[in-house]
Amino acid sequence: MTAKSSAATIAVLLRQSSAKCELRSILQARTRPTTAVVRAATSASTLTTPRNLNHLRSLHTTPVWLKKKSREDKEQARASRHAPDAGSSSSGSSKSNHAYSSTSASQRPTPTAEDVLDFADVESRLAKLSSNANESLKKIKSGGRFNPDLIGAVKVQPDRKDAVSYPIRELASVIPKGGRTISILVHEAVNIKPIMSAVQSHRDFNQQPQRSPDNELELILKVEAESREDVAKRIKAICHDWRERIRDVRQRRDKLHAAWKKDGSLLPDAKRKADTELDKVIKAEVAKVDAAEKETTKATESR
């Protein structure tokens, strides 16, 4: 393309742009276009025909939209789309760190050979065992099987086709009626039979509640009194299981000490010191079990 033809083309483009602006103002003002505007618009329409577009395309060597991208360009573009900006990156990092800290805080402490005398992991496991066992002993002290809370905690499966189960207290109101009689006021009639089956199959009751003649949604459960021997056996069984689980916690930590010594992370003297201190922790916990068993037995014998 010569300099003269290029200049002519540029002039036509300028006239086209000017004509478009003037046409827009004419449409807004609703006035008749001048002869110059009509001529410029005609020239612009002639310029934009497919034949003349091919002529003008010589201004560019290769259209940008037809240029093929290499694999590196595609990967860079993909990375730029998914990469967050600096602000969002810092905020995202802080969020992830917060999530990690909250998650790690809820998890049990991790023991290390560098701080072998730190028994936070052992104490965490022992605290959970103590909480569960003391809860069971508390129920025995508050009445054994004749305990509305114990009955309310019995699991019920309303739908046999669905494995989801609910405690009785979510499906009914459990109310003591005096003596050893407990009233179970069911919220919906459809749950009456599942509740009756759950109570009958429970190891602590082994009897079916009876329907009340006055209220079709009420079930009456008469809890039989336990002998002192039976109560003592239940207390002993709970405390025995508690001690066994404490031994399991001890063995778990003993294996860690042995592994650390084997791989060279823990020296023999340090291992002996750690074993001695761990033994003190375990003996103190077993003493708590003995005291809880004695206290619960004494409380039930005085009833």
Rank of each mutant, 00 (worst) to 15 (best):
G143K: 06
K283C: 09
A232V: 03
F205N: 12
H240C: 00
S70R: 05
S302K: 12
A291Q: 09
G179R: 08
Q200G: 05
T297F: 04
R57V: 00
S18E: 14
R247W: 09
R245M: 03
N191H: 15
L53I: 07
R51H: 06
A7R: 02
L27N: 14
E301V: 02
G92C: 01
H82M: 07
L171R: 13
K283H: 13
T297G: 12
S6G: 05
E224I: 00
R234I: 01
L66H: 04
V38H: 01
N97Q: 13
L59S: 01
R253P: 08
I184A: 12
I140N: 07
V164G: 04
R30E: 15
E75C: 00
S173D: 15
N206D: 14
S70Q: 06
V286I: 11
H240G: 03
A270W: 07
S89D: 12
A79D: 13
A36P: 01
E293Y: 01
D275H: 06
A11L: 11
K67N: 06
V64Q: 00
L219S: 14
T110E: 08
E218P: 10
K155D: 04
T42Y: 01
V164H: 13
Q207C: 13
L217T: 08
A19N: 08
C239E: 02
S106G: 07
R180H: 14
P194W: 10
A127P: 10
H55N: 09
I10R: 01
E285A: 09
L185A: 15
S17G: 06
E216V: 03
G143D: 10
E75G: 00
C239F: 02
K68T: 13
P50W: 05
S90P: 00
A299Y: 04
S124G: 08
K294L: 10
I195Y: 13
H187G: 11
